[in-house]
Design a protein around this nucleic acid. Structure first.
Length: 543
DNA sequence: CCCTCAATAT
DNA sequence: GATATTGAGG
């Protein structure tokens, strides 16, 4: 991008617009939460600083107000709108502020001018709009050498009411209708933005109060955030509850072959873990009863799919769905220690629980397309962690000891835990969004053991989990706990030995790299595993 | 006064 | 379209 303008330009460039260059040496701070606008604007400037957040802008200004000659800010921004920014700037420092907006509503423009904007530029900003703003800087140094107090008369000839806030901007002109909207800055409540920090505070407050005891006023107290009203909290709480309700009302649907279609709602007293496979009687595994007493209320779902279409399901149900009792037996045999391990994991991670709600459901959902690679059937799912994101992106992850390695966390701040899995656990990957991802544990030895148990010889050059007569499903997902401490989307079907890896240390560590034969021979790309189809496809498909 | 829910506004 | 704000009703 930046080419052809590293010239020296003097202040004015009075020629034919073509050669225009923004005055060198004029330091502009541009604020716009629309990154595109910001880029466009920046293209017209020379020495500039940009930010999408008014608060950041403010911070920069406060840290060194001499770093900038002029501020250009958008009017409409989320966390703090341009007027507010303008107000604060004119209150605290003496830097000309120019507003820009695509809104040419006269009242809005007036509002800007009234509160001290030196100019009001209409988007889209072009050279024509921007080329002369230097005048404001010059004017300031001419008339306003150090202090302030532009002679009142000056205000006439030029839009420049640069108002010290002390006088409350009672300059009224267009006061034909001095409704609620004049004094706007003082009166109209600022639309607050629920930043990540605020959400975290909110969430903490709800936690400590207990999810059912949390009411706006108390939350507000606990949050101890000046500038936030009870109404704000109430609103947020409303959203919070809606999200929760939505989360608890789970739909089971399958859009093909009319297999399952039901819809169930409500909280559940205990836990169900389900994994799926598409072949054989051994295909469904449920772990249930992680609640206090093991399994008072079994919830099981048989999920058999022979479809090639995306489907959505969840494993939360009120009533047992079909699962032959003999398979329950198998389940118990296979994972006898699972509930205990889960509990240990819970404790190790030191998850604060909300109220007295027991740990209940474990869920995953959104099965995606079933795919096939070299005979290895795999399927991705989007775990219900997405629902956590829906819940105001609440930072449930912060309660989990960082078990990321050195790499960056995933988009939610939580390292992605990927799990290739089948009815026998194969491996657990820790992916932090970088490549190569690390394999927590190579479970191929587990596989061997299992294969022996199953009297299956695993040929060479096959994937773990793939062996004659049983191409197993692989899936990847993210795991974590939601804000209530419920486990969501943890890699399914993990065998005890692997779970122990989780709980063995609060800090998950790289155990070893993927075995070479997996890396090379099969063109497996371990570089990417997340919960999306694309990522999994990237991981499993040869280039 | 405070909480919720639903309508309305942004 | 999401979500923040406003307002009515309990």
């Amino acid at each position: 991008m930046s080419e052809k303008n590293d010239q020296v330009g003097q202040i004015p460039t009075p020629e034919n617009g073509k050669e225009y260059q923004f005055p060198v040496g004029m330091r502009v701070l541009a604020v716009d939460d629309d990154i595109v606008c910001l880029q466009k604007l920046a293209a017209l400037l020379r020495q500039f600083t940009v930010t999408t957040e008014a608060t950041k802008a403010l911070k920069m200004l406060r840290e060194n107000k001499d770093n900038f000659d002029i501020v250009i800010t958008d009017v409409q921004m989320l966390e703090m709108d341009g007027f507010r920014l303008l107000e604060i700037i004119s209150l605290e420092m003496d830097i000309p502020v120019i507003m820009m907006s695509s809104n040419d509503d006269i009242k809005t423009v007036m509002k800007g001018i009234e509160h001290g904007a030196r100019d009001y530029l209409l988007k889209p900003i072009r050279v024509e709009e921007i080329k002369n703003i230097w005048q404001h800087v010059i004017r300031k140094t001419l008339f306003d050498p150090d202090k302030q107090s532009i002679p009142k008369g000056a205000a006439d000839q030029n839009p420049k009411p640069a108002k010290r806030h002390g006088e409350r901007s009672k300059v009224k002109e267009a006061q034909t209708n001095n409704l609620s909207d004049d004094d706007s800055l003082a009166q109209k409540r600022q639309r607050i933005a629920w930043t990540r920090e605020l959400r975290a505070k909110f969430c903490d407050a709800v936690k400590t109060l207990g999810v059912d005891k949390a009411v706006p006023k108390k939350i507000l107290e606990l949050m101890n955030e000046p500038g936030i009203t009870r109404e704000n909290v109430a609103s947020h709480l409303q959203k919070f509850r809606n999200a929760m309700k939505k989360n608890d009302a789970i739909t089971i649907q399958q859009n093909d072959n009319g297999v399952v279609s039901s819809s169930i709602g409500g909280h559940l007293p205990n836990t169900t873990i389900l994994s799926f496979d598409n072949q054989g009687p051994d295909s469904v595994h449920c772990l249930d009863g992680f609640g206090v007493n093991g399994h008072s209320n079994s919830e099981m779902i048989q999920f058999s799919h022979h479809v090639q279409n995306p489907e959505t399901f969840s494993i939360v149900s009120q009533k047992p769905l079909s699962l032959p009792t003999n398979q329950q037996g198998i389940l118990q045999q296979r994972y006898p220690q699972a509930p205990e391990i889960m509990n240990q994991m819970w404790q190790t991670m030191n998850i604060p629980r909300l109220g007295n709600s027991p740990s209940h459901h474990y869920q995953m959902g959104n099965l995606h397309q079933q795919s096939d690679f070299n005979g290895l059937k795999y399927q991705t799912f989007t775990s219900r962690l997405r629902m956590v994101d829906d819940l105001m992106d609440m930072d449930i992850y912060s309660h989990i000891p960082s078990y990321s390695t050195s790499s960056e966390p995933g988009p939610s701040g939580f390292p992605l835990v990927g799990c290739t899995s089948n009815s026998h656990s194969i491996g657990v990957f820790l992916d932090a969004g970088s490549s190569p991802s690390t394999m927590l544990r190579d479970a191929s030895t587990d596989f061997s053991a299992i294969a022996q148990n199953d009297s299956v010889v695993r040929p060479q050059n096959v994937f773990p989990g793939q062996y004659e007569g049983s191409n197993n499903v692989s899936c990847m997902g993210r795991g974590g706990l939601d804000f209530r401490g419920q486990i969501t989307g943890v890699p399914l079907d993990m065998q005890g030995s692997i779970m122990e890896e989780f709980i063995g240390s609060s800090q998950m560590k790289l155990v070893q790299q993927p075995p070479e034969h997996l890396k090379s021979e099969n063109n497996l790309h371990f570089s990417c595993c997340s919960s999306t189809d694309d990522d999994l496809n990237a991981a499993l498909n040869p280039v």
